[in-house]
Design a protein around this nucleic acid. Structure first.
Lengths: 225, 225
DNA sequence: TGGGTAAATCTGTATGACAGGTATTGGGTG
DNA sequence: CACCCAATACCTGTCATACAGATTTACCCA
């Protein structure tokens, strides 16, 4: 993938160490010095990889004792990064359907005035960017994010951000966004977003969820004609 | 919270630096040496914090140039770590309702024979642990995980794991699990899980989703009597 | 003014060191 | 022989220093 930095290679190496063979949950993995020798790099870099592994919930470091396997990285999750962009994107949409539709419903039911202002602001910025024919992926995501925020449930945000990080990784890996926005589509995208925002404004949960589902379905169609 | 390690403090400090003041997306944050002096720690530790920030998608490091803000951490996400355990758990359940219910439906529709075997295996291990009156949180989560895996959609797993990591962090922070498992509850938990698994076995999506919703609702009740 | 080069700055990586935990071993005692 | 405790080896957390390679900035010359 992007293994330019040594720490990335070390990360992958340790993941393979865990996933590939006998290390199961609770097992101790080799000491930092051993890993450094194993991969032919310095302990500094091994530590960086371990920090990320711990941050990803795969390992857990115990001071004075060692690093331990906390959750085995699933083979399918690893395979995800090797899945072709299109099917990965489709899979992501499937989750967004259930997650964001419900988020839109809750947002409609709970939004504060301040939330509504943030959503309107994001919508306006999206409109401006869309009309200028520039890539608007960031603005699009920001609007969705503001809607998720309005649920006042941080757990929704956690799940949403895990997904978008994924999407962005896919995008970075090569999906051409600009291709999928012929001029006549821009108006449709805006109308879809406006329908969602209007439903949230009207505090109509069912309509918001429906509008979000519609919007995501249309978006998926645009990706796979 | 968990600020025992210096890198955690540095992480929070940098987040506050971005979130608290004028740093917006695209801005460069102070150099590693500056940050080290700022927090009174070594550059090594600053780097660990930056590695995690980059891993979390908040910053982006450009060799020779500096670290840049990629996504602003939302204030509510920060507040999440300071939310009391109970309401955070309830918030998580709200998301699990929509996410896992749909995962159960898809699992029922798509499961392979191998998936079914993994689910049965996880169920059996959960039963054994429950009957021995030991903490069974790990086994419980593993069963849910296997169900999510059976969707054959890695994006579901991404969202699910982001949530469970969160849940475990909450658990680690002090929720007493054993308290909430008086003997008469064990049978109920098993019946709920069996209902889900049976529906998946019968490839009945609606029943699976319903059983999962019921199970999560009961679980939430057990947490907040 | 414009352009190109040199200097300053910054991240990526390596090495060595020490403090303060944790696990283990081995010896002493009953 | 079994058990408890202390010495010891091992490990992570942290710091300081150094240098290579990339990038930005500054300056000088044309």
């Amino acid at each position: 993938m992007s293994g330019r930095r040594l720490a990335d290679q070390a990360y992958s190496g340790i993941v393979e160490l865990i996933s590939g063979q006998k290390l199961s949950v609770g097992d101790r993995l080799p000491s930092e010095v051993s890993l450094a020798e194993m991969f032919g790099i310095s302990r500094t870099i091994v530590r960086e990889a371990l920090v990320r592994l711990a941050s990803d919930g795969i390992t857990e470091a115990r001071r004075g004792a060692g690093s331990y396997v906390k959750n085995r990285p699933s083979d399918r999750l690893i395979a995800y990064t090797q899945t072709d962009n299109l099917s990965a994107t489709i899979g992501t949409y499937e989750v967004r359907f259930v997650l964001e539709a419900e988020a839109a419903r809750l947002a409609a039911m709970r939004r504060s005035a301040a939330d509504m202002a943030s959503i309107d602001d994001a919508l306006q910025k999206l409109r401006a960017t869309l009309l200028s024919s520039l890539p608007a992926h960031a603005e699009d995501m920001e609007l969705h994010r503001q809607i998720v925020l309005a649920t006042t449930n941080p757990a929704f945000l956690v799940a949403f951000e895990a997904l978008t990080e994924d999407v962005e990784q896919i995008m970075r890996a090569g999906v051409d966004i600009s291709r999928m926005r012929p001029p006549e589509v821009i108006g449709a995208m805006m109308r879809e977003h406006e329908a969602i925002v209007d439903a949230i404004r009207a505090q109509d949960g069912d309509s918001a969820a429906l509008a979000m589902r519609w919007h995501l379905a249309e978006g998926r169609k645009r990706l796979m004609p």
